[in-house]
């Protein structure tokens, strides 16, 4: 079966890489101080979860990330819909949106810490500034690309504004919004972790920053792995929801089930 072969190759590649890393680190070809080694990292992750010391951090990061994701997306979709349907407002706001989007978000982190403190709120704010624009631009684009004929047809068939929103604009933008959700999750995590990294008392970013502070590369890598798995799980969840909601589309060529 093709799917199985593919999986075997993928897993094989990973194992090969890990084996090489372990070997190179043990035989001194790369310095374990700077690169650690997979067995240590695995052990560290195991210890974190078995003693439960990682859970409070995981909880904080998850909370920040979910809040940023939720509010960033809601704001982005709402504003995207509004501006796509009100061209004159869009024309007025266009330079402001471009300017705001041009700010490198990382420089906002200290300001948000100043405004909102060291807690969850400043990280959520940072995440929102990242997530918002992704959702906004995708929704805007999705609504703008609605086929004019489909739109005219719906209007002639008697659709009011509310009907158009529900039965035409939102479904048409849905595939754009969903593809943006998967990017947004990544951004929400970035917002949370970078915020924690730059100043906080809890979270995976804090954990990584602490490990880094004492030159504990194993801790840094272990934090990265936990984050990675965390994002992959969320991404898969969104993929599931997407498949349920956007099932009207023809299946993309060569897509993997």
């Amino acid at each position: 079966m093709r799917g199985l072969r593919l999986r075997l190759w993928q897993v094989g590649l990973l194992l090969l890489f890990l084996a090489w890393w372990e070997w190179a680190s043990r035989t001194g070809r790369i310095d374990p101080f700077f690169f650690s080694k997979p067995s240590d990292i695995g052990q560290r992750i195991w210890r974190w979860f078995s003693t439960g010391e990682v859970y409070p951090h995981l909880y904080v990061t998850t909370l920040e990330m979910l809040l940023a994701f939720l509010f960033g997306t809601l704001l982005g979709v709402a504003l995207g819909l509004w501006l796509a349907l009100a061209p004159s407002a869009a024309a007025v706001l266009d330079p402001y949106i471009k300017a705001l989007n041009a700010i490198p978000r990382v420089v906002l982190a200290p300001i948000f810490t100043l405004w909102f403190g060291l807690g969850v709120l400043s990280k959520v704010a940072l995440g929102i500034t990242l997530v918002f624009f992704v959702a906004f631009f995708n929704t805007y684009q999705g609504v703008k690309e609605v086929s004019p004929v489909v739109l005219q047809n719906a209007r002639l068939l008697g659709a009011g504004q509310g009907h158009l929103l529900r039965h035409v604009y939102l479904p048409a933008a849905a595939s754009w919004i969903f593809s943006s959700l998967r990017t947004s999750i990544g951004f929400a995590v970035i917002g949370a972790v970078v915020g924690e990294y730059l100043g906080s008392a809890a979270g995976l970013g804090y954990l990584i920053a602490q490990a880094e502070g004492v030159f504990d590369t194993t801790g840094v890598f272990a934090g990265m792995v936990v984050l990675m798995v965390f994002v992959l799980v969320l991404d898969a969840l969104v993929g599931q929801v997407e498949r349920r909601l956007v099932h009207w589309r023809p299946k993309a060529e060569g897509a993997q089930g």
Binding site: V149, N153, H167, A174
Partner: peptide, 30 residues
């Protein structure tokens, strides 16, 4: 818009995200 008109467009104009049945039901729902 012409309130008396039903228009069968030259191009495809039905909603791609609704089933055949829902597409036909839609004008009544409106």
């Amino acid at each position: 818009l012409n309130p008396a008109a039903g228009y069968l467009f030259q191009q495809d104009a039905i909603l791609p995200w609704k089933t055949a049945l829902d597409n036909v039901a839609l004008p009544l729902v409106f």
